[in-house]
Design a protein around this nucleic acid. Structure first.
Lengths: 195, 195
DNA sequence: GGTTAAGCGGAACCATGTTCCGTATCGTCT
DNA sequence: AGACGATACGGAACATGGTTCCGCTTAACC
């Protein structure tokens, strides 16, 4: 699926074996660290866990966002691909939209601190926006548009704004039993409905 | 209103003049710094702007939250007091609720980074939650309860959750013209309505 | 085995928050 | 006025975490 190896022509000079090995170790260590300490686990910790020096982490993943993207790429892809599927399988476009948003929320609340990072304007996370947005906004837009065309929801909200809103609502879910992000997201989606 | 001076008895030994002067300077400098650099403006910057040493800032405001609270206390009070007033003046409880939430949103989006800080689990901001919540949750609860009793909105959402949700939605407003927190908050409030 | 460039490690540097203590100043008492 | 103790001050020193850089290692190829 990705553009690594077996590509069209020459531009893949095949990295050295130790480089590939270290990259994998870093991904594993980062995934583990993200679970225990959240997505802003100290760089040194991740490097130590992977048994490499800090320099190596920066060589493979220049910014923290690159590392996060690499770790979660599969899941984001899965979420993106679920959009059309749900649209085909659900009884109404609004149902599909609601279910898809559920997937998105699940993804965010299970990754400690990811929602925060996504909204943060910290330079380290800057590349996170483009990646998530490029991949998910079109999917969400299609769901919104289909539902709007079916006359189920209001028209004047674009996918970007909705995704950011949902992402924002997910901030701090998980840390606080009195706050249930899913319920608020559900209210937001309910607010979209035409009455 | 506050419990400073002219109190009941002995426990106010009257601070030294330079201490009071520095405290005021710090408040002014912090207010200015918060506008230009957000609520996490570097401690040293604020101290320099106020013409004092960093030690002085910590003596007067042990945590950043204390400083933020001191700077914005008036406005939080005003917001809290507006609750009953709106309830008395508005045509319906739901209108009062919507207007009050508007005030709250206005407050948050005009203070660069305050919404972020409010939701952050950073230890430095820990005292921010109690203050805001103690002051505003009861007000919001009364608005919610009145509207629910009037049969205008759903019952199963408590004030804490709503305020956190609205606070979350305000994160990053102001930095991004494509994201309009007010619109999403309005949708959320719309989602509360019984239909 | 010899050569070379990709890759590595981690010391060093920078930015920030936080603590601590020697010194300066205030307020008061004589 | 002068002295004295308590209060408050400043900023150096320390802690933490991100980021850079360069001398050394080693995989890959001849």
């Amino acid at each position: 699926m990705t553009d690594t190896e077996s590509g069209s022509a020459q531009p893949a000079p095949q990295k050295r074996a130790d480089a590939r090995r270290n990259q994998q170790r870093l991904l594993d260590a980062a995934a583990a660290a993200f679970i225990t300490s959240g997505v802003d686990a100290p760089v040194r910790d991740i490097a130590t866990k992977a048994g490499v020096g800090v320099g190596t982490i920066y060589r493979h993943f220049p910014t923290r966002a690159d590392l996060i993207v690499a770790v979660y790429r599969h899941q984001v892809e899965a979420c993106a691909e679920a959009g059309p599927t749900l649209l085909a399988e659900s009884s109404t476009p609004h149902t599909a939209l609601a279910r898809w948003i559920d997937l998105f929320v699940d993804f965010l609340v299970t990754k400690h601190g990811l929602a925060e990072a996504l909204q943060s304007d910290d330079a380290a996370f800057e590349n996170l926006h483009p990646y998530f947005l490029d991949r998910l906004v079109p999917v969400c837009a299609q769901l919104l548009d289909t539902a709007a065309t079916a006359g189920e929801i209001v028209r004047d909200l674009d996918a970007y704004e909705l995704l950011r809103g949902v992402g924002n609502l997910c901030i701090g879910a998980g840390n606080d039993s009195r706050y249930d992000a899913r319920r608020l997201v559900a209210l937001l989606i309910a607010g979209l409905r035409l009455r």
